[in-house]
């Protein structure tokens, strides 16, 4: 747990709100006056995890900065569904430049703010950059690494839906093995995305030894908000990687977005943790450990694993990846077990 959970108030801190908590202990999203930084009317698919994650994260950042926030956005679903002329869903100063340059644009914004403050600006304006996994781990990788390395005062948020969704679900370096995408079709001897490729950006971010790195999912709002707020207590480069299910790309039911996020963590497929200056400082523990099948089955992108003769070996390889995550990121609570 990244924050002190309320042990027992009916739902503890699992739900978005909890009327039994003191107001200051409630989540940003529970607030009637939350900013809705990403407002209604956007064109994201039904049940889009990215739309949800973005509002969660940016509202939390707005809260943490007293609404002194500017965002740079990479090209991708989030940008396309939020700002088609003539309407924008953003309620904060927001800028989209290109697919691969959001971190650099944010560096520029932060630098400009620094100078403005030297020249007398009173507001402590902070900067976030955000993009999809493609915009982050692939095309924006260079700019991101540069921003990290210079330790620019930017919080970068990656919304990982495991593929290039906006262009019609192609493979990215964050697509999980075995997953079907338009460029890793479930055909041939090794259907779906191959094993042994891909990269896990949070670990690479840690290697830059930046002040703060965290992962989160849209299933654990408290944790996510806590991490965004915590990130805002640091100066310098920070990175938060949020798993955001994509009903379209994953072939999942629109109402299952949160459930799948939850299962991603509970099966060990997606580790949820925090790191400071390159060292793991905390990992969210699995509450009810489940086999990876539970996570894979509801997603059509893995449907080829569960045909007439289930791909037992492939599922076992995915389980092995999950087991490795569990070990590596200390996802099991040793005391509780």
């Amino acid at each position: 747990m990244s924050f002190q959970p309320v042990k027992f108030y009916q739902t503890g801190t699992f739900t978005v709100g909890n009327r039994l908590l003191a107001p200051q202990e409630r989540s940003v999203q529970a607030n009637m006056e939350r900013t809705n930084s990403l407002n209604s009317g956007h064109r994201a698919c039904q049940g889009c995890g990215e739309a949800l994650g973005a509002r969660y994260a940016i509202d939390a950042a707005m809260h943490a900065t007293d609404n002194q926030l500017i965002a740079a956005n990479a090209t991708g679903c989030l940008e396309v569904f939020s700002t088609p002329y003539p309407e924008t869903s953003w309620q904060i100063p927001w800028m989209h430049s290109l697919f691969g340059n959001a971190p650099a644009v944010a560096t520029g914004i932060a630098a400009a703010i620094k100078i403005k403050r030297q020249k007398g600006l009173k507001d402590d304006v902070r900067v976030v950059a955000q993009g999809g996994d493609g915009g982050t781990t692939d095309i924006g990788f260079g700019c991101l690494s540069g921003m990290f390395e210079r330790n620019d005062d930017v919080l970068y948020i990656c919304y990982d839906n495991g593929g290039y969704m906006n262009t019609g679900v192609q493979r990215s370096s964050a697509t999980p093995p075995a997953a079907r995408t338009a460029t890793t079709m479930p055909v041939g001897p090794q259907p779906g995305n191959v094993f042994g490729q891909g990269k896990f950006m949070p670990a690479i971010a840690m290697a830059h030894e930046i002040p703060y790195v965290a992962t989160a999912t849209v299933a654990d709002l408290r944790d996510l908000e806590h991490k965004v707020k915590k990130a805002m207590t640091f100066r310098g480069a920070r990175y938060i990687h949020i798993l955001v299910p994509c009903p379209l790309g994953w072939g999942s039911a629109s109402q299952d977005t949160i459930k799948l996020s939850r299962l991603a963590k509970e099966t060990g497929m997606f580790p949820v943790f925090e790191a400071e200056y390159g060292e793991l400082t905390n990992s969210s523990k699995i509450r009810r450990l489940l086999p990876v099948e539970e996570y894979l089955r509801p997603q059509k992108r893995f449907a080829h694993l569960f045909g007439k003769s289930p791909a037992v070996a492939t599922i076992a390889r995915l389980q092995a990846l999950a087991d490795k995550n569990i070990r590596k990121y200390e996802m099991l609570d040793k005391e509780a077990n």
């Binding site: 009916q10 739902t11 739900t15 978005v16 709100g17 909890n18 009327r19 989540s27 999203q29 529970a30 009637m32 809705n36 990403l38 407002n39 209604s40 956007h42 994201a44 049940g47 889009c48 995890g49 739309a51 949800l52 509002r55 969660y56 709002l221 977005t257 949160i258």
Partner: peptide, 20 residues
């Protein structure tokens, strides 16, 4: 029981919280 989940999880802010 006013857990705010629906209010929070809607990706479209289509839930209006009316107050305690």
């Amino acid at each position: 029981f006013e857990c705010d989940n629906c209010y929070g999880v809607c990706p479209d802010n289509a839930v209006i919280k009316l107050g305690p």
